[in-house]
Design a protein around this nucleic acid. Structure first.
Lengths: 341, 341
DNA sequence: ATACTTGGTGGAATCGTTTCCATGGAATCG
DNA sequence: CGATTCCATGGAAACGATTCCACCAAGTAT
């Protein structure tokens, strides 16, 4: 069906030059005559030649491929991030090898091994857990790496993260002002830096603004929607249930929302709900959801920018992007009749 | 920083065998002694050897990489599809190179060229428009290709698509039963097969069930949310506005939803809304959205299955998956006071 | 015993590029 | 006008794996 594929030798032969010259023309090497350039270009067009990226990479040790490792594209936050990073990379002439770790360390390792074997020029990762062995293998090989969204303790690579603290603090203050005293927190997994940081911020803010610091008000989820449902269910079943819920990411907020709806609670009246991560349609819900928002697009772009610097051999500073509260109708005044059994 | 990388020769030397034998051990060739296997394995572990995928692919003409070309990962439908396909591929030992065409033909071509250069083992594509030049280049090279979600007229490759007709017909019948006569349709771009097929199904069903076939009731969007907003705005501004809206994909439905909310219309009472594509949180809206649902997970798996068959040199039959209406509260009885200026 | 498989092995060619090095001609300089 | 630089070029050696081919030792059939 498919004959022997056309190589640079065929192009060179047709153009009447040597493969070396053809290669120089193709790579834009200035040491070429106008004549050669023109003839090679014509031959390339005529043969519809596509250089073999494997052979090229083998010789030049540059693949123009980067690896993007994240948890789950189905999470809108990561989908936005993937889109932003991929588009930014494309603008720099890099294509993206996508790895979905599915919040699973073995699968993360699987993809990191693949990235190493593929000799990617660099890796952008939202790492799981505490430095897996493959993560160390990556760094020991000196493969340029940046972290995005999350970091790993004790691994010093440039990162672009969100300053969750400011947004969470605003959210807690907002709830406190409205008179909430018991706020349930659906936390992310404590094996991720974002999970830990956001919980810490929440606890500190709760203390600072005089909210209950009852540990029973914290439920540990896994950043996926089912755990948000379970968390809301659990928290509302407490002897002293919270009057407001704060979820550490959007899928868990969606899960919590489902539970609240199922229980017939009126959001924004019977109970307040705030989500970390803004998603386009959160503002379309009834009531619209109060959220802690951050600029995911900027995060993706920044990650690619940092990675390019690392590839260039520099050691860029990490970037921390702000977060802020966007108040909508889902966070209302607590109902005094609640929480009084 | 990073020394000369370790090659199979280093492994062979350490194991006291030839590179040929080491290679055989690594690729599971049975013509190896237990002794060699054991020694090579030990050397690989000790050196933390990762074979160079480029060199391997160059010689063996298999990359174990497939290209996945789709429109936009931010569209939950494609995110689900990407996730399903990627996981299914991974289970077969293939990694996925992701290309986001962004509903743009030049960008689609850019990625297809990349896939060709990367010598991917196969391509799963949700194609834009009518066979671009790069799409033909792909097929002329005999690169195994399957279409997913969409097809292209005149290009005969196996595909896995949704039978939109059944779902749309059910939706139209449902609306007709409720007494709706003027149903606005927010169509997808007519440069995609899904855009065309769904419009055709809608028109036919509208005629069959006695709905108005006023062409003004069809608005042509581009499968992205902004066009859904614009479409709803336009349709509601007609002299005889529709009492129900059907959007051909979920982002456009979200856009329409935003417009309806902004106009203060009560969905399910003042106006009915149905979306093609079910999204987890559509059932969480107030009111929950009536949708035409199909199994995206199955679609992704089927696409990988077909691709593997094509790679194996077979010529599999295309797969058509069913769609069905899921009635929720957003599709209600038309308000008789509407549409009577 | 001789011939003939069998199974493991190593040497060397090969995949398609890039890049080092040498070369030859034209242009520039003293 | 001869010597030097400059530039475009081609030949050939890499890059790191796989795989063809020949080989040798040991086992089996004659």
């Amino acid at each position: 069906m498919t004959g022997p594929s056309i190589t640079i030798k065929d192009v060179a032969a047709l153009a009447g030059v040597s493969p070396a010259t053809a290669s120089r023309v193709l790579s834009g090497n200035p040491a070429t005559s106008a004549e050669s350039r023109q003839r090679v270009a014509a031959a390339v067009a005529q043969l519809d030649f596509h250089p073999n990226a494997q052979a090229r990479a083998l010789r030049s040790t540059k693949t123009n491929v980067i690896g993007l490792l994240l948890s789950d594209v189905r999470n809108p936050f990561f989908a936005d991030l993937a889109h932003a990073a991929e588009q930014a990379a494309l603008a720099e002439g890099l294509v993206t090898l996508l790895g979905n770790a599915n919040e699973s360390i073995p699968q993360q390792d699987r993809y990191l091994e693949t990235f190493i074997s593929q000799r990617v020029d660099g890796v952008i990762a939202a790492p799981q857990g505490e430095g897996s062995s493959s993560l160390h293998a990556l760094l020991e090989r000196g493969i340029p790496t940046v972290f995005v969204d999350r970091t790993v303790n004790g691994i010093d690579v440039p990162s672009v993260t969100t300053d969750s603290d400011s947004g969470i603090r605003q959210a807690v203050e907002h709830l406190a002002r409205l008179g909430h005293e018991r706020v349930g927190y659906i936390a992310g997994p404590q094996t991720t830096s974002t999970g830990r940081d956001r919980l810490k911020s929440f606890s500190r803010a709760a203390r600072d603004f005089g909210l209950s610091s009852d540990p029973a008000l914290t439920y540990f989820g896994d950043f996926q929607s089912a755990s948000g449902s379970a968390g809301a269910h659990h928290l509302l079943g407490l002897a002293q249930p919270p009057t407001a819920l704060l979820a550490a990411d959007s899928p868990m907020a969606v899960g919590a929302l489902a539970t609240l709806n199922r229980k017939g609670l009126r959001i924004g009246r019977d109970i307040a709900l705030i989500a970390f991560d803004d998603i386009e349609w959160f503002s379309l819900l009834d009531p619209p959801l109060t959220v802690i928002s951050h600029d995911v697009e900027a995060m993706g772009r920044a990650a690619v920018g940092l990675l390019l610097e690392v590839i260039d051999g520099r050691k860029p500073e990490s970037v921390v992007l702000p977060s802020e509260l966007i108040v909508r109708a889902s966070s209302g005044t607590p109902d005094p009749s609640l929480g009084q059994p």
